[in-house]
């Protein structure tokens, strides 16, 4: 078995934001082709973790390593476009670098946003907007796709459709996916690994290992039990026949 290619490695990373410690001694890595989801309560440092990886916040200590020539596609949590800024989808996709027309069309098609290229960004619906963001993120065929709560503001069918699209993009491009999500049943059924964050890494591992961890239960309480039960049914169904795999990667500890 070939050892997987490390795309991003964080060691002992601590980030301070405005006088408080947002992340404390975080170890993290993501390999080629993996889907890793970050869960955690509000203010637990999920977005900060993603921002540290793209270089938008500077760590106070610890190391951050990217694989050589790593291409990252990033979908931010919120993108408020000022109404004073006229911006067509085409122009948005060409920021900061221009791309050939076929490249734009292909990315839009892959993201499920065909036919929107002439539209104004501010005139898009929530679902269309998120798809265009996804299209921009996959323009340069990234090795790693980073999504910060990509379904914020979408209704249930809308967010389910968007997750299917992300899954399809990942299959087509073979990109690794790192995302923050609140939709635990989706997270649990679609991720290779889950990181449960609360300022530090509470626990991590295969979804079912994390779901059983007391640290995770302490954070998410009984409110998620129903959702988890629902997912479990799904999960057994889809991943039937690979029980050993998850245990190999399962690892829960209290940091």
């Amino acid at each position: 078995m070939q050892s997987p290619m490390r795309l991003v490695t964080l060691e002992n990373l601590t980030v301070r934001l405005g006088g408080h410690t947002a992340l404390s001694e975080v170890d993290f890595h993501i390999d080629k082709g993996e889907i890793v989801t970050v869960v955690g309560p509000n203010g637990s440092g999920k977005t900060t973790l993603l921002k540290a990886i793209i270089g938008a916040v500077k760590p106070r200590s610890g190391t951050l390593k990217h694989a050589d020539g790593l291409r990252i596609g990033y979908v931010p949590q919120r993108l408020a476009i000022d109404t004073t800024l006229p911006l067509t989808v085409r122009r948005f996709l060409c920021l900061p670098h221009r791309h050939a027309e076929p490249t734009l069309q292909e990315a839009l098609k892959n993201a499920g946003a065909d036919g929107l290229i002439e539209r104004q960004m501010t005139a898009l619906s929530g679902g269309q907007f998120q798809r265009v963001l996804l299209a921009r993120a996959i323009l340069e065929k990234p090795d790693l796709l980073i999504l910060d709560e990509p379904t914020t503001g979408l209704d249930q069918p809308g967010s389910a459709a968007l997750y299917r699209q992300i899954e399809k993009v990942r299959r087509d491009l073979g990109s690794a996916v790192l995302m923050v999500s609140h939709e635990l049943h989706v997270v649990m059924s679609a991720s290779d690994r889950v990181i449960c964050l609360n300022g530090h890494v509470c626990c991590h591992g295969a979804p079912e290992i994390v779901a059983d961890a007391p640290e995770y239960r302490a954070l998410f309480g009984s409110g998620t039990q129903g959702a988890l039960a629902l997912y479990r049914h799904d999960h057994d169904h889809h991943h039937h026949g690979h029980p050993a795999h998850s245990h190999e990667h399962g690892d829960c500890d209290h940091a």
Binding site: I54, P76, I81, L85, L87, P96
Partner: peptide, 12 residues
């Protein structure tokens, strides 16, 4: 223009 749109997108 990219930085005006969103600082994080610019960083990425």
């Amino acid at each position: 223009l990219t930085a005006t749109l969103n600082p994080d997108l610019a960083h990425a």
